[in-house]
Amino acid sequence: MMNEIDQQIVQRAAQGDKQAFRLIVLHYATAVNRLAYRYTADASYAEDIAQETFIKAFQAINRYQANAKFSTWLLRITTNSAIDYLRKSNRLLADSLDTEDLQQDIPDHGINTEDHLDLNQRLSQAMSDLSDVERLAVTMKHHQGYSINETAQVLNIKSNACKQTIFRAVQKLRKQLTTGANV
């Protein structure tokens, strides 16, 4: 559970107080970067997305409604920023759903026992090897708690396609667990 910032600081920031917004950045910077990294599996992308998220947040903060958690609102901006960023960065996203390469399995890192990759490393590598849309879908659904319909809507794909994408991603990740158990 994320520790929420004082609501008064948010209110001051909403009135244009940059020092109050600085406190918000200090409070949530790591969480925003980590989520951006989950979505992209790229440290450089995560850094750019974090910057973009806070710039957008400052511009929109007077529209934030206090009945929702501020972290939920901010991480939604992070999600949207990540999707926009991946779309802009020529990494095939929603359009790539029907392409065959997405059906390819993740390289089985567990087979190569000489690498001595532990389970966490292999799972992390497997996460990186997912396609962007798979990583986005499974992170949004499993980590961020979006519904299938919300995830589909944000990714601009059909609901059934979204279910299949998440299922495929989970299968790939679980395969690493199974391989790890067999090693």
């Binding site: 790591t30 980590r34 980590h143």
Partner: peptide
């Protein structure tokens, strides 16, 4: 396990003053 692995094995370690650095970049 997948969630724990994602949390435990963070391939993107951030400096302790990351928030301050980010603030300087966007201020």
């Amino acid at each position: 396990a997948i969630e724990n692995a994602s949390n435990a094995h963070n391939q993107n370690p951030l400096p302790a003053d990351y928030g301050q650095q980010l603030w300087h970049q966007i201020a």
